[in-house]
Each structure stands twice: as structure tokens, then as C-alpha cells.
Design a binder for these strands. Structure first.
Length: 524
RNA sequence: GGCGGCAUAGCCAAGUGGAAAGGCAGAGGACUGCAAAUCCUUUAUUCCCCGGUUCGAGUCCGGGUGCCGCCUCCA
């Protein structure tokens, strides 16, 4: 089984292996630091994070670099509006970025180079292009001479003649040809500026990526990624600049993620059609958002609607419920007699073949929806197994542990199911509130035993123990067939976000996760 | 006008030649004091339409239709 990746350069899936036997060099275009992130940015980050994780899983050492664009027109405008320097604006947004990426379970890249910290490299690269006649100076600006680069259009399928015929190209008197693009822009008054051989100015948008990718990864990299909306002109121009300067292949594989749409239209800042990542994270844990983002193939468009995250949370809950069930299993004694031996062996084989299916799915151009379905199939089989094998012995227990570990292992490649759902401690206040509530139930009644005599002592116990006590007490009521009171306790606890579940083996409880935006319970 | 993508059940979504994955929602059932969780059964004989290739097509080819992206900053 080998990894096949759809290479946008050739518009087909190709077998992937790194140029240098063990090391993969991957560069992904990051964000421009001018405004909040939205789900579209999150999708790109999560997709390339999965690719990064999977490449590492293949045993390769992966050098993964993603940049920040920290100087451009929109940033300059925005910074002026906020009365900040572009540097301050960048710092602020980078802080949010790392916080939100962390919430999504995105692993840190090797480094996050910034355009403004690589002026010497950028200037060198432009000089190189100038020497080759691929760049020319015009009134303080420097442009790339597209006509001198014969391969122009090889990524996007655009050809210079067709582009020239198009009506949407900006007419600029300074350019020799409308297709030429800026490598260096002469600065206007009040704009951030750097010295250069061509006078004061700032880098054009595309050149930073070429310069920084080459600096950190070399002149030929294995994978270059970014959103589908970057194919033209950004990536096309990167190829022109880089290959024009070096004469070498810039990137062997080009990977583009599909865009997130909302109401069937591209999610985009400029159109106002977007959901910010901040908003999404206010309503749902990062893992749910991540799961949603991986629920479509990375090259397909992904449509967000009102119920997307709700559905994702329900689906994810299924897996978490299973993992928690296994985590809660008590290890049987060594001498528990083995039963259902054939069933257990059969189950073990299924676990392995299921894992193979998962790997095959990811090997086929990172097919995450298919990979995820393998996890669901395994959960289903395991639930069924648990149901059928009623007496848990060491062998069946070990099988279930194996499934759980497999799921966590698969989850690791997707960045899911890593954290056990923490039973966060409620505040002292809410525990006191709980007591008030529950004590109210007993007004005029005699709960008896522990609760009537030791109510003050209970208050000093850790919350988990208090809840356990109430659960015990409720079970006493249930044994007495006092359903009304038992149900009232359950409902009071539910108000505090504590879900009780009774089954044959007893009662377990867990915290639910509430969606703060719409009060819908998204417990996982 | 040019380049590219998509069209599969109520919804989301896999599937590039050989009996239509998975999830959500719905229906029925098992379990349960009731819930919850779990399990079982069930939901596409028309895979956008029309032609063609083939023993056989959602899958390949041709022609339509609809939607989307890029060609201007954009993950």
C-alpha cells in the first residue's frame, strides 16, 4: 500500500514519495493577517494538519512550513482604521491564530515565517530574477516579465494569450504587459517601507512565499499546498518566480483544498458570507469543528449550514460514548474462564482488517470521509461484540482494549479522539447550588441517613464524590420504587449538565457539553 | 469570454467497469419503572438529463442542463 496524492500540476493522482529518501518538504500558504479567521481558514489548516500527520505516520521526517503574510494592502487599511501599526495588528491576530489552531487540534508547523522578517531573502530573489531578465524596474516598482517564462500557466491551465483576451486584467501603464505582476511595490506615503536597490518600497504578495519556501526548504520542495482559490494567480506566479530564478522544479506536488461554502456560495470575508472560527468555537468544541471539516473529501467543496455542527457532534458522540465505555471497564481477573473463543478471534481479525481499510482510505489521496467511516464501522462491531459477549473475560477484555487503542491510533492520524472527555469539575458555586436545589426536594420529607445528618460535611467533599453520593441516594430511592423523587434528582443533575445513565451494571454519570450559543446540548 | 470543479436517499457524504460505504434525521422492534446508551430491522428496482462504448456503467466517451470556484485581495 502506497500513498497516492492528486497532483494539481498534472491533474491526476500520482504515487508519492519524497525526493530525498526520508525527508518530506512541505510548504503551505498561510493566512494574511488582516482579520479574524473563518471556517474556510480552519478547513485548510485542519486538512494540511492531517496530511502532515499522515506523512509522519508513513515514517518520513516532515519539514512543514506555513507562512503568515504580514504586509499587504488590506492590512495597511485595517491597521490604519484601528490606529495600529501593521506589526501590532499582526501580533494580535497571530495570538488568536495560535489559540484557535490549538483548539482545533492543529499541530504546530516547523516554523511560521513572516514576510516582513525576510526582506533580504525577498530582495535577493528579485535581484536574481532581474539578472536573468525576468524582472524589470518601472518607476520604482519591479515587475515579473511573464512573457519570458514559457511555462507560465502550467498549473492553472491558463495561457497567457487567453488571459490577455480576458477583460478583467487591471490596466497598469507601468507594466510592459498586463499579465506582469508586481515583485516589489514602491511605497506610498504613510505606508510601511523598506530600503531596496529600487528605492523604498515593500514586497509584492507572491514573492514572499517563493523566498521563504526556498530559504527553509530549498529550491525544490515535495509538496506545496493552499486553498483552491490560490491556484491562480498566486501559485502560478510562485512557480514563475521560483522556477524562473532557479531553473529547477519548485514544487513536485501541488495540493489544493476545496473551499467552504455557505448557502452554496464561497465563504469569504469580502462578501460577508462567513462564519468566524471564533463564533464556531463559542458554540462547539474544536474537535467537533475539526470532525465536520474532515467529513468531506479535502478537494470537494464543503457546505456549512445551521445543522452541520450539530450533526457532527452527534456523530462524534457515538465514538466517544464507546471509548468511554471501554475506559470504564474493570479488568477481569486472570482466572475468569474464557468463553466465546471463536467469536473473540473473529473479532480480532475484524479489528485488523478494519484498520487496513482505514489506512487504505488515507493512502488514496487522504480520503478522510472514507477513513472516518471505517472508524464508525469498527465502533458498531465493537458495540455488538460487547452486547454478545456478556461475560467479560480477560481475552474479550483485551480485544476491547485493542479496539479502543486502535481507534485512538486512527484518531491520532486525524487529530480526533485524543483527549479523554475531561470531567471538568464544577465550580463550588454550582455544587452549592446543586445542594440547595436538591435540599429543596426534601423539604418536609425525611431523606434519612447520610443526607439529613451530614449535609454540611458533604459540602466540603470534592464535587465528584458529592455527585456519586447523590447518584447512590437516587439508586436507593429507585430500589424503593420511589420513581418520582429519583427522576427529580436526575433532572436536577441534568440541569447542572450531569447526565445519568442506568444500565444493568449500575449507574454512570458524565458531563454534557452545552452549546453556549443556542443552549442545545451537544454532549459528547 | 477563458480555465477548473461539482451534480449519489429527507440532509451530510464515500464509491473511476461487475450485486449503491458511513453518519445524521425518520419509522418499527429489543432492553428499560421511565429516560439515556446500545443493538436489530427498515429508508436509492429513476446514482441531473439524452445518446454511445461494453456481456456489464453512478463509474468510460459524446452532447445537454443546473450549481460553484478562479481569471481583482482571498484558505
Amino acid at each position: 500500500m502506497s500513498l497516492r496524492i492528486y497532483n494539481a500540476l498534472r491533474k491526476k493522482k500520482e504515487e508519492f514519495s519524497p525526493l530525498n529518501d526520508n525527508q518530506v518538504k512541505m510548504y503551505v500558504c498561510g493566512v494574511t493577517l488582516y482579520d479574524e479567521l473563518h471556517l474556510g481558514h480552519a478547513r485548510a489548516a485542519v486538512i494540511f494538519d492531517v496530511i502532515y500527520r499522515y506523512l509522519k505516520h508513513q515514517g518520513w521526517q516532515v519539514k512543514y512550513v506555513t507562512n503568515f503574510t504580514d504586509v499587504d494592502d488590506k492590512m495597511i487599511d485595517r491597521a490604519q482604521m484601528l490606529n495600529l501599526s501593521i506589526y501590532q495588528l499582526a501580533e494580535r491576530l497571530m495570538g488568536e491564530y495560535s489559540q484557535q489552531m490549538h483548539a482545533l487540534g492543529v499541530l504546530p508547523a516547523l516554523c511560521y515565517p513572516r514576510a516582513t522578517e525576510h526582506l533580504p531573502e525577498i530582495i535577493d530573489l528579485i535581484k536574481r530574477l532581474e539578472r536573468k531578465g525576468l524582472a524589470y524596474v518601472s518607476e520604482g516598482d519591479v515587475f515579473f516579465r511573464v512573457k519570458k517564462f514559457p511555462d507560465y500557466g502550467k498549473l492553472s491551465g491558463q495561457t497567457p494569450s487567453e488571459l490577455s483576451a480576458g477583460a478583467r486584467i487591471e490596466i497598469n501603464e507601468k507594466k510592459e504587459d498586463p499579465l506582469d505582476f508586481a515583485l516589489w511595490k514602491k511605497s506610498k506615503k504613510g505606508e510601511p517601507t523598506w530600503d531596496s536597490p529600487w528605492g523604498k518600497g515593500r514586497p509584492g504578495w507572491h514573492i514572499e512565499c517563493s523566498a521563504m519556501a526556498m530559504k527553509y526548504l530549498g529550491e525544490t520542495i515535495d509538496i506545496h499546498g493552499g486553498g483552491q482559490d490560490l491556484v491562480f494567480p498566486h501559485h502560478e506566479n510562485e512557480i514563475a518566480q521560483s522556477e524562473g530564478a532557479t531553473g529547477k522544479t519548485f514544487a513536485r506536488f501541488w495540493i489544493h483544498n476545496g473551499l467552504v461554502t455557505m448557502s452554496q456560495a464561497k465563504m469569504s470575508k469580502s462578501t460577508g458570507n462567513f462564519l468566524t472560527l471564533r463564533e464556531a468555537l463559542r458554540g462547539y468544541p474544536g474537535e467537533i469543528i475539526r470532525f465536520f471539516l474532515l467529513s468531506a473529501h479535502y478537494r470537494s467543496p464543503l457546505d456549512y449550514n445551521q445543522t452541520s455542527l450539530k450533526e457532527a457532534s452527534l456523530a462524534l458522540r457515538r465514538v466517544h460514548t464507546f471509548l468511554r465505555k471501554v475506559d470504564d471497564l474493570a479488568k477481569p481477573r486472570e482466572d475468569t474462564p474464557v468463553q466465546n473463543e471463536e467469536q473473540i478471534n473473529q473479532f480480532d481479525r475484524e479489528i485488523d482488517s478494519n484498520f487496513d481499510n482505514f489506512i487504505q482510505a488515507l493512502n488514496d489521496d487522504f480520503n478522510t470521509p472514507l477513513a472516518i467511516s471505517a472508524i464508525f464501522q469498527l465502533v458498531k462491531k465493537a458495540n455488538l461484540f460487547m452486547e454478545k459477549v456478556d461475560l467479560l473475560n480477560l481475552a474479550s477484555y483485551n480485544s476491547l482494549i485493542k479496539v479502543r487503542d486502535r481507534i485512538r491510533q486512527m484518531g491520532q492520524m486525524l487529530g480526533l479522539f485524543q483527549v479523554k472527555q475531561q470531567k471538568e469539575s464544577p465550580s463550588l458555586e454550582s455544587i452549592n447550588e446543586l445542594h440547595q436545589e436538591l435540599a429543596g426536594i426534601f423539604k418536609g420529607k425525611k431523606p434519612g441517613g447520610y443526607f439529613s445528618t451530614q449535609i454540611d460535611q458533604i459540602k466540603s467533599l470534592p464535587p465528584k464524590q458529592v455527585i456519586d453520593l447523590w447518584v447512590d441516594y437516587r439508586n436507593k430511592l429507585r430500589r424503593e420504587r420511589n420513581w418520582a423523587l429519583a427522576d427529580e434528582i436526575r433532572s436536577k443533575l441534568a440541569n447542572l449538565g450531569i447526565i445519568l445513565e442506568d444500565d444493568k451494571k449500575g449507574t454512570t454519570w458524565r458531563w454534557s457539553m452545552r452549546s453556549r450559543s443556542d443552549q442545545e446540548v451537544a454532549d459528547i
